[in-house]
């Protein structure tokens, strides 16, 4: 049981290719981190997997437990168990958080089935408490006027409520001070379980101090160029992305030499 990305090529519709043959497998129960410099395709990857309409897949596959999701609408992918914690969560004026999450859960039920309101609020409050979210939050409009920390906590709350099979966290650490980061990371860690696979996308190693990954991948130029254990993150942190780029140039040089 895993999220498999196979030879994925994608671009902004009509534009330059950004993902250029990306391969990745995230097993259920594991946490994979993707690190990479700016412009390497990190955010593109999260959007392509979740079906953002601005992106176009030119070839490759994304399999969710063996099912190809690329032909599915974003909402069908979500209902199939895919969750994206947005780097920039979107405001929805006039729609309360409680109603929004409730509508999302309701959308997962069969026609004619109704969410039990008492159970729902019970679950919601329990998850909110874990994330130190005050009760007044339920009646506020989704992300409207939220601080950076509140927005990210809201993403984790939604993830907790929707119980995805696979979750992608796109730069969840951006815009967070250290206290907010700890709370958010604790929330994410609480959701780690044998039934969830997580893909944590980040620019900085800092987040990985709090959400310890099983595997670290480095994304450069639209491809995974290195995969190793958690120690890779520290190596990157101390040596910088240039180090990877240099080794790549050497590799490319070696490949060129070999092909002559």
């Amino acid at each position: 049981m895993s999220l498999v990305i196979h030879n994925l090529h994608a671009r902004v519709a009509g534009g330059q290719e950004i993902l250029r043959g990306l391969n990745l497998e995230v097993q259920k129960g594991s946490v994979h981190a993707i690190m990479g410099p700016n412009g390497s395709g990190k955010s593109t990857l999260s959007k392509v997997i979740s079906g953002h309409p601005d992106y176009e897949v030119t070839s490759g596959e994304v399999l969710l437990d063996g099912v190809d999701v690329l032909a599915m609408e974003p909402d069908a992918r979500a209902r199939a168990g895919l969750f994206l914690a947005f780097q920039y969560p979107v405001e929805i004026p006039g729609v309360s958080n409680a109603n929004f999450i409730r509508a999302a859960l309701q959308a997962r039920l069969k026609d004619g089935e109704e969410l039990d309101a008492v159970d729902y609020y019970g679950d919601l409050y329990k998850e909110m408490d874990k994330l130190e979210i005050p009760r007044t939050f339920t009646s506020r409009s989704v992300n409207e006027g939220f601080s950076g920390g509140e927005k990210k906590r809201n993403e984790v709350l939604q993830m907790a409520m929707l119980k995805p099979a696979y979750a992608i966290l796109d730069e969840t650490d951006s815009g967070l001070d250290i206290d907010a980061l700890k709370v958010v990371a604790a929330g994410v860690n609480a959701l780690r379980s044998p039934s969830v696979g997580m893909l944590v996308i980040t620019h900085y190693q800092r987040l990985l101090d709090y959400i310890a990954p099983d595997v670290v991948h480095v994304l450069v130029g639209g491809r995974i160029v290195r995969s190793a254990g958690p120690e890779l993150a520290y190596e990157l942190e101390s040596k910088g992305y240039d180090w990877i780029k240099e080794t790549l140039t050497e590799d490319a040089h070696a490949v060129e030499l070999a092909s002559v």
Binding site: I92, F100, I101
Partner: peptide, 17 residues
Amino acid sequence: FYMQQRGLSEAQAMSLS
């Protein structure tokens, strides 16, 4: 897109907006 990513259909998302 944000609402669809949470599992709401396009029509449900519009309607909620």
